[in-house]
Amino acid sequence: MTINAAASQQKHPGGKPALELVCPAGTPAALRDAVDAGAHAVYCGFRDETNARNFPGLNFSRAELEDGIAYAHARGAKVLVAINTFAQAGREDLWQRAVDDAVAAGADALILADLGVLAYAAEAHPAQRLHLSVQASASTPEAINFLIERYGIKRVVLPRVLTLPEIADLNREIACETEVFVFGGLCVMAEGRCLLSSYATGKSPNMNGVCSPPSHVAYREEADGALVSRLGDFTINRFAPGEKAGYPTLCKGRFEVAGRPFYVFEEPTSLNAASLLRELVNAGVTALKIEGRQRSRAYVRKVVSDFRRAVDALGTGGEPAAAATDALSDLSEGSRQTEGVYRKTWR
């Protein structure tokens, strides 16, 4: 492996921190709120299975995307369009059309995962900036450098399973920017390769854009006030009366192990890396991603404005953590937060 110090320096010219805040927008109104709350960039997707948040009532028509891009650009913000599911054989035109339409709408970058879609975008639109989605599961220098060389990707979104030292090492060995998750849903799996949702329901974020599709989710409140959540034929959890709840995903399910209920993979909790922003800058990270295209405008406004204050505080030598950790607990899954694997003292 070769160390690409020049690339690392290029990311932060003059050693000055340059963190771009990339914020979620599930709807046009959320996009406007994210921009107004201080997002440097907003990511969103079309209202179909080409993006990994294909939930009912969410996402953008072609006309809405054009309007959203105009709104963001008028205020100095970028729009990144996620076309990050895997194209299905015989239906490639759906993904190719999404690429063409996003480029025509003026997207600042496309966030792609599928090799075929990457190849199409690189060939059909060579001037278009391409980012590699976390769904592409590229987390080694060899994989990332191959995709840079082959498709000219300018940024990779890293999975939430790398430690800070691993991110720093990776940044020294790759010739593109890195974007890391700092807040929201904590996926602890090999993203883009996880089959848990598919196993339980036949639908997955990778192919259909839905993790734990709501069509297969059912809740039941029992007479004693307990809440039972089910996904397909599986009981995911039984929350005691008053106990904070989480999403009905298998990876956050509580199952009986050795005769006692136990969180086998991970507890209901959200990522909050606000206290690590300085370390992330030092590790060579370019952009911070806030998860939550399926969340409301209230979530977007609160999380984006808190993190924008934290990022600004970095530039003025202030304390970024205080700006973004207070008051976000109640927006978190299970009302709990963690720094996840960034600090590897976790499980």
Binding site: A298, K302, A327, S329, D330, S335, R336, Q337, E339
Partner: peptide, 16 residues
């Protein structure tokens, strides 16, 4: 608005 003291820090998801 929602609020409350945030819980951060390694291990709190499992132990706190």
């Amino acid at each position: 608005p929602p609020g409350g003291k945030a819980q951060t820090g390694p291990g709190d998801a499992l132990d706190g």
